[in-house]
């Protein structure tokens, strides 16, 4: 990376922050005098945001939601990658299970919520199962694809140097499937956030989705909008976090692609 001269750096900052700043300013002034019941002034929403989410609700609602998402997502990654490696390993097993998996994946996860309700209790575990039921499929199917596509020459190299067992699994199979696994994990994260919210709707467990629904049904619109804002910020923060993980895990892959493009 060459250092940008001051002027160009300034231009870049202006490009990055310009439009968001304009939008926020427009929102601020356009809504400032609003006496509409639903569309409240931005200033009011920001005050509600501070009072609602930076108080006790941070511990009572935000953290429980995030913790369920984290546990469900982690379980999905472990399950999806584990089963994906097993299924991807054998051509017969793959042919046998692929249509079943495609069918299960195609079911919109929210449709499973009433069914999961029959089995799991009312507490945290039910919400976590809902998150897993939606997140596991993209990871599983992408892992199967990735494991199937291991390069033949690399596989031969491992065989002839007698690289086997766990070393082979870790250094060949999982690493070469990792770009695909990350694609699945990215899709799963988006689904996970959706399920984190809707698994709390019409329920009794504390959480972000639960609170926002309460605000809506009790006509507390500034608080409701602040909840929408919070979900937006969380979505952006998790996407950034994922991008960090991606560049750490797939640094080699992005470099390889960049060097292939140059040639």
């Amino acid at each position: 990376m060459t250092k940008l001269p001051g002027w160009q750096g300034l231009q870049r900052v202006a490009l990055v922050l310009g439009l968001p700043a304009v939008l926020v300013v427009v929102w601020w002034f356009a809504s400032a005098d609003s006496d509409h019941l639903v569309f409240r002034p931005l200033s009011e929403i920001l005050v509600a945001f501070r009072e609602t989410w930076l108080g006790p609700r941070l511990v009572e609602d935000v953290l429980p939601s995030l913790s369920r998402l984290a546990r469900g997502y982690a379980a999905s990654v472990v399950l999806g990658v584990g089963l994906g490696v097993l299924v991807g390993w054998s051509r017969t097993l793959r042919a046998l299970l692929e249509p079943v998996l495609e069918l299960l994946r195609a079911i919109p996860p929210p449709a499973l919520i009433p069914l999961i309700g029959l089995f799991a209790g009312l507490g945290d575990s039910r919400r976590i199962v809902i998150i897993i039921a939606g997140c596991v499929w993209p990871i599983l199917l992408n892992t199967v694809e990735g494991v199937r596509a291991v390069d033949e020459v690399l596989a031969d190299t491992c065989r002839s140097y007698r690289v086997r067992g766990l070393t082979r699994l870790r250094q060949l199979v999982l690493r070469s499937a990792s770009p695909q696994i990350m694609t699945g994990a990215r899709q799963a994260l988006a689904i996970g956030i959706i399920l984190m919210v809707i698994s709390e709707l019409r329920g009794t467990v504390h959480g972000i989705g639960f609170s926002v629904e309460q605000f809506q049904t009790s006509f507390r619109y500034p608080e409701m909008w602040s909840g929408v804002l919070l979900l937006g910020l969380l979505g952006v923060a998790l996407a950034l976090l994922f991008r960090l993980a991606d560049s750490w895990i797939l640094g080699w892959y992005h470099g390889l692609r960049a060097s292939n493009r140059e040639r």
Binding site: L154, T157, S160, R162, T167, Q171, R175
Partner: peptide, 29 residues
């Protein structure tokens, strides 16, 4: 017995640094 393949681009592990590529068979051993 060791083999050097024709497709050098595909016989090296792109996710391992040069030294780790050289060390991998030794680690497996």
């Amino acid at each position: 017995l060791a083999v050097v393949f024709q497709e050098y681009g595909r016989s090296l592990f792109p996710w391992l640094r040069v030294r780790d590529n050289v060390e991998l068979p030794l680690r497996a051993a």
